[in-house]
């Protein structure tokens, strides 16, 4: 990755700046000195509380979620050799959210803080495994995306059923909030439960980078180059499942980050599906932190949800990318 050092260093710096701005901006005005004082716990106690218990966890949550979703998207696109692949489009997010909502519905989440992340990850892995099996049977990416649409719709239908049978307005609000996607009111402890899964997931995806580059030539040629296709599929499927599931345990469903970020990064890394992974993760993190700052400072009468904003911007972008995709490409 030496070749992309300037790009990655730039994006990393952007990430630090974005997180710092997330600490700086908000309903309680803080000066730059206040933020430093709060961060180092040398300033006023209230500043420390605002920074460490409210703004920093929220910014971290946004960054980690964005990074996990963007790298998962980039890796799935590389594996399926299609720029429209993404955890949301392929039904991975929907299945994960469904599993998490089930846990909320039955009130299991209160038993242990690990249950919600575990359920979200289980749902995501189930969906990626399904896609993996489907990919073995069909060579067509269009079919896979249609399967994803089916999985998404079915998960959505089951979600509606759960909402329909919600025992009381409170649990209904709980579940709806979950599906909208947000990084508000997360504590560093909440993050700590999901982070290990995400880190392992992203590690697996990074390990798949060389194979993704090779897959540019198609599966047959990549196998001829010495790539073990089965290992490659497992790496990406488990990696994307862990990372997506972990991010959904933190933030609920946030769509389209995984499709827009790699799309923007692609020309910057010479369209190489292996080199794109790390820059996508960093840029995805920056994107969600920036979007979350915007949501917080926009004067709306109800709290704007990050997932709603992401979908409002992301869905038209998805359509745009689909139209741009040259018809001569692979299907």
């Amino acid at each position: 990755m030496i070749r992309d050092l300037p790009l990655n260093a730039g994006l990393f710096t952007a990430g630090i700046i974005a997180i710092f701005l997330a600490c700086l901006l908000g309903s309680t005005p803080l000066s730059i000195a206040d933020v430093f004082g709060g961060l180092t716990a040398t300033g006023a106690d209230e500043h420390s509380v605002i920074i460490w218990q409210i703004r920093l966890p929220r910014a971290f949550a946004a960054f980690i979620t964005g990074a996990a979703l963007a790298m998962s998207g980039a890796a799935l696109q590389g594996l399926l050799r299609n720029p429209l692949a993404e955890p949301g489009v392929l039904g991975v997010s929907a299945m994960s959210v469904l599993a998490a909502t089930l846990v909320l519905y039955f009130g299991l989440a209160t038993a242990s803080s690990l249950i919600l992340p575990a359920a979200a990850i289980f749902g995501a892995l189930l969906a990626t495994a399904l896609l993996g099996f489907a990919a073995l049977r069909t060579g067509s990416v269009v079919t896979l995306i249609l399967i994803g649409v089916g999985v998404s719709s079915f998960s959505g239908a089951l979600m509606s059923l759960l909402l329909n049978f919600a025992p009381n307005p409170f649990s209904l609000a709980d579940m709806v909030n979950w599906t909208l996607g947000s990084v508000a009111n997360r504590s560093l402890t909440d993050l700590a439960y999901s982070l290990p899964f995400i880190v392992v997931g992203l590690g697996l995806l990074l390990a798949s980078a060389r194979g993704l580059s090779a897959l540019t030539l198609g599966e047959e040629a990549a196998a001829g180059l010495g790539l073990n296709l089965m290992h490659q599929r497992i790496l990406v499927i488990v990696g994307a499942g862990l990372a997506t599931g972990g991010s959904i345990a933190i933030a609920g469903a946030i769509g389209f980050v995984g499709i827009i970020t790699p799309h923007v990064m692609r020309p910057l890394v010479g369209h190489d599906p292996g080199r794109i992974l790390l820059p996508s993760a960093l840029a995805g993190g920056v994107l969600l932190v920036a979007a979350d700052i915007l949501i917080r400072i926009l004067p709306t009468y109800a709290e704007l949800k990050l997932g709603v904003v992401a979908a409002l911007i992301g869905a038209p972008a998805f359509v745009w990318i689909a139209i741009q995709k040259r018809s001569g490409g692979q299907s």
Binding site: T216, G218, G224, L225, G226, G270, D272, P273
Partner: peptide, 18 residues
Amino acid sequence: RAKQLSYLPQNRQLSWPI
């Protein structure tokens, strides 16, 4: 195997414009 044998399949289409 790949170090001793290279294989060119019929499909020449590249998935990305590298």
